[in-house]
């Protein structure tokens, strides 16, 4: 279990975009990482569309362990309001951008064991707000003591 034992990560290769089905209005999305491996998140991309209700939305990328305990959150530092739409890219090596309907956000090195879950966490998500076009990419590793 990462965090308890030292281990040598053996790179098993990259995973092309993991495509996640759009979850429907006012619904968060999540992805359960398959067991047995360790994953390094390299990119998370999604499109968020706000309905017409007045509210300040804050979007976050969250990961939880296999007991559903929150282990980390990447938080956007700019709110969305009624009618806003944004393409979000969290990526390793990216610089912070907010222009042209895009939010590009740096992603720190994030290692996630199999059995953990990565997904969205949206503050003040309104009834007609939607996530679509969700894609994740990873490097996959095996633990070797």
């Amino acid at each position: 279990m990462p965090g308890n034992n030292a281990f040598v990560p053996v790179n098993l290769g990259f995973i092309a975009p993991v495509e996640i089905a759009a979850p429907g209005a006012q619904t968060e999305w999540s992805y359960l990482l398959p067991d047995e491996f360790i994953y390094r998140l390299t990119m998370a991309y999604f499109f968020y569309e706000c309905d017409g209700n007045a509210a300040n939305r804050w979007l976050r990328l969250r990961f939880c362990d296999d007991a559903a305990r929150v282990r980390g959150v990447f938080t956007d530092n700019k709110q969305l309001v009624a009618g806003n739409t944004r393409h979000y890219t969290f990526g390793i090596g990216m610089t912070l951008i907010d222009s042209g309907g895009h939010r590009c956000i740096p992603l720190s090195d994030t290692w996630l064991p199999g059995g953990w879950t990565i997904g969205s966490e949206t503050e003040d998500m309104e009834v007609g707000d939607t996530y679509t076009l969700i894609a994740l990419t990873f490097q996959r590793f095996r633990e070797q003591n």
């Binding site: 975009p17 991309y45 894609a135």
Partner: peptide
Amino acid sequence: RTVWMHKCAL
């Protein structure tokens, strides 16, 4: 399926 999109901001 679209896995990434970017419109030039300028």
